[in-house]
């Protein structure tokens, strides 16, 4: 399996929502407000974990109608949580709900150190796993 593209991830979410493929799922998702205009720009790029978190967070809020967990302090176990100020809530919401997992830091995660690993690319396998948890 290869790496997941942004457009494929949105298409798969759209399929999950509608039960079928749409004509232009990225544009449809943009219209519905659960992806950003930035996702339409270079949508064939590889999906990274922080983008996946943002899109999934938008999906569960807007499509599934989930309200945000008000207290996200438990997510601060992620050592890199604040590395991206715009991603903090997206990452916290999907991690605290168990939709995306933290990643271990080799050698020291047994002492409680985990990261989100914002820029890491999402594999097709990982994307499948995320979708299965929605």
């Amino acid at each position: 399996m290869g790496m997941e593209k942004v457009s494929d991830f949105i298409r798969r979410l759209y399929q999950l929502k509608e039960g079928e493929d749409g004509a232009d799922p990225v544009a449809q998702a943009l219209q519905e407000g659960w992806v950003a205009a930035e996702d339409t720009y270079d949508a064939e790029r590889s999906l990274d974990r922080q983008t996946a978190a943002r899109i999934v967070h938008g999906y569960i809020r807007i499509v599934q109608g989930a309200e945000d967990l008000p207290d996200i302090t438990a997510a601060s176990f992620l050592r890199d949580l604040y590395d991206c100020r715009l991603c903090v809530n997206h990452i916290a919401q999907v991690c605290l709900r168990g939709i995306m997992d933290a990643r271990k830091i080799p050698g020291i995660s047994d002492r409680g150190f985990f990261i989100f690993d914002h820029r890491a690319e999402v594999s097709e396998e990982e994307a499948e796993e995320i979708l299965s948890r929605l």
């Binding site: 945000d68 996200i72 601060s76 604040y82 903090v88």
Partner: peptide, 24 residues
């Protein structure tokens, strides 16, 4: 400093602010 809240609102959602936290 970095942001006063990372849990901003949306239309119909007032967002979440805190009195204190372990960061900004």
């Amino acid at each position: 400093l970095n942001d006063i809240t990372f849990q901003v609102g949306a239309d119909g959602d007032p967002g979440h602010g805190a009195w204190e936290s372990d960061y900004t």
